[in-house]
Structures are given as C-alpha cells and as structure tokens.
Simulated scan of single mutants.
Amino acid sequence: MESAHSAFSEIVNEEVIYQNPLLFLKIWELGSDSAHFGVPTPWLWHSHKQVEFLVVMEGLLAIQTKHELAVLSAGDVIVLGSSQPHRTYKYSAGPLRQIVFQIDLKQHFDLSTMPYLHCFSELTHPLEQFNELFRSNPGVKQAAYDFILQIFEESQSRKIGYELAISAAIKNLLLLMLRNDNRDLSALAEDSGIARLRPALDHIDNHLGERITVEDVCSLLNLSYHYFIKYFKKVMGISFVDYVNYKRIKKAERLLLTGDLSMMEVSFEVGILNMAQFYKLFKRHNQCSPKEFKQRMRSQTGVTPAPLLAQAD
C-alpha cells in the first residue's frame, strides 16, 4: 500500500455546492451493499476548502490523510480541516453507510461568537487534533455523532424551521468540541481582547456603505497601524480586510433576499464601488454569483421578495 507520507501529486480540488447557500453546508449519505472492497485503482486524493466531518453508521471505512491511515467503524466520527488532502475506500465486504458533512465553519460565527473563531483556526489549531478527542472520549464521540445525524435528518426533512435546528446543532457541535478539548481553548477565547476591539467592530458595522480604512479604526483605538493589524488577526482569527469584506457580503446577502435592488445598488449599499470586485468577493464567499444566489434562494423558498415601499414624506 502506498505510504501515508507519499507526495500529493494528483489532488482533485473538489467544488462543494451548498444545499442551502445561507447555511454554507452540504450533507448527504453514501452507501454500498456491494461485496467488493479494497483499495481502488486509481486511488485519488481530493480536497476542498470546507471542513469535513465523516460519520460511519455501518461497516468499515478506511481513510488516509497526510497524517495517518485509519479504519473507521460504526459510530466513529472524524474531522478533516480545510483544504486537507484525503481519500477513502470500503474496507470490508459488508454493507457500508456513512454521512459526509462539509461545512464552511467561519460562516456560522456572528459578532457574539466571533471571539471563538480563532479556536477553530487552521493556522493555529489544526482541526485534525480534535480527532484524538473523539478517539479518547466515547461520550464526546457519541454526542458529535448525534449532532451530525440531527443535521442530516433536518436537511432531509426540511420541515419549517429546519435552518434554525441545523444552526443550533452546528453551534452545539462546536461547543462540545471546545469545552472538551484538553488544550484549554476556552482560556484563549477569554483572553481574546474582543472588548478592546468593540469600537472597531461597531465602526465597521455602522459604516459598511462607506469607505473604511485601517487608519480610521486605529485612531479610534489609539493603536499604531502595524500593531492593530497583528492584534486584530490574533483576536478575530482573520485579517481586518477579510473581516470587513465578510461583513459587506453578509449585508449584501440580506439585501438580495429582502429587497429588489439592482446588483449595482446592492454593491454600492455595502460600500463596494467596483462591480468586478463585488462579484469576485461574493463568489469567493458563496461559490456563486449574486444573481445565482438570489435565484437559488427564491427557488428554495418559493417566495418572491416584495419590492421595497417608498417611505412617506
């Protein structure tokens, strides 16, 4: 068998199409009743920018990452970090059933939970380290299994309020990992300095439709340019520019769903005056154009947003 440390010369960069653009996830069941098993030819690597959880419900699944080759059995859970190469195969002749759950985690943090984003940052805390938690703590593994199964069932039933149920289960899954991790990430979050950045975050929220400069925010906090850039990245887990762009696109999503503005009007409303830049940023966050996003959401909900009413003088 090829070594787990072999060169990743052929990695398929998989594009994940979200089942609901506002939930930023894809979750589905894979199954095989075939007696055929073993290493396929070719056995290709693949990766994607989304974090992936794998849950085995029945049978045996072999998975290889750049760190290890493991065999998962029924009840096992494994998490793969963003853009981490991996490949799998059916390990036994019996039936195999698994849930594949791909998600852009950073999209599920709002202002109240943003201080914890860096606890799940690939730069400082590789998510694969949580797999040791699943292996060593059966109770945590079972709880994670149950949350992921709940997310899958809600995504299949699509009952009214399923988005709320899925969002709650995702946050509970993250909380489970956070509170049971032996690296004491909670201590890091408590010392994140979010209170010190609050004037800057409020300034960003209040001026999304305008030009926002690092210099303006530095003056609010009385910090030097270079210190602020490093401090913001340390506290928030993402750069100042990426955070501002994230907030602009989130506002653009709301405008696209709740109003009937043109694409140019939406772009200007969120402070992006260059349409090419607006399309580029929107596609980076949503894997689709603003127009496709609007059409997809309308087709999912079956509701066409009413035009904005003019305010009376």
Score class of each variant (00 low, 15 high):
M1K: 12
H5C: 09
S6W: 01
F8M: 11
S9T: 15
V12P: 00
E15A: 09
Y18T: 06
P21N: 09
L23H: 07
L25P: 05
E29W: 00
G31P: 00
S34W: 01
H36K: 15
H36D: 08
G38Q: 10
V39P: 02
W43G: 00
W45E: 06
S47R: 15
K49I: 12
V51L: 10
E52T: 13
F53V: 04
V56E: 01
T65R: 11
T65L: 13
K66D: 13
L69I: 14
S73V: 10
A74F: 01
A74N: 05
G75K: 02
I78Q: 08
L80R: 06
G81P: 07
S82Q: 14
S83V: 01
S83M: 05
Q84Y: 01
H86D: 06
H86Y: 06
R87H: 01
S92K: 04
A93M: 07
V100M: 00
F101T: 09
I103L: 10
I103F: 03
D104G: 02
L105K: 12
K106F: 13
H108A: 11
L111K: 03
L111R: 08
T113M: 12
P115D: 10
P115T: 04
H118Q: 14
H118A: 13
C119Q: 13
L127R: 14
E128L: 04
N131S: 11
R135C: 10
S136C: 04
V140P: 11
K141I: 03
A143G: 00
D146G: 02
F147W: 11
L149E: 03
E154F: 03
Q156H: 03
R158T: 05
Y162R: 04
L164D: 03
L164K: 08
I166C: 07
A168P: 00
K171E: 08
K171Q: 14
N172W: 03
L173S: 08
L175F: 04
L176E: 13
L178W: 00
N182T: 12
R183A: 07
D184Y: 12
A187G: 05
D191R: 06
R196V: 10
R198Y: 09
I204V: 15
I204E: 13
D205K: 12
N206Y: 09
H207G: 09
H207Q: 10
L208R: 11
E210M: 05
I212T: 08
V214A: 09
V214F: 02
E215C: 01
V217W: 00
Y225H: 14
H226E: 15
H226I: 08
H226N: 14
Y227F: 08
Y231C: 03
K233R: 15
M236N: 05
I238N: 07
S239K: 02
F240P: 14
V244F: 09
N245L: 04
Y246P: 01
A252N: 05
L256F: 06
L256T: 10
L256C: 12
M263A: 03
E265F: 04
V266T: 13
G271Y: 02
G271T: 11
G271E: 01
I272Y: 04
I272F: 02
L273I: 07
Q277A: 11
F278Y: 12
F278V: 12
K280R: 15
F282V: 06
K283W: 03
R284Q: 11
C288Q: 15
S289M: 07
E292F: 00
K294E: 14
Q295F: 06
R296Y: 01
M297Q: 13
S299R: 14
Q300I: 15
G302N: 12
G302D: 08
T304C: 11
A306T: 15
P307G: 01
L308K: 00
Q311G: 07
A312G: 09
A312K: 09
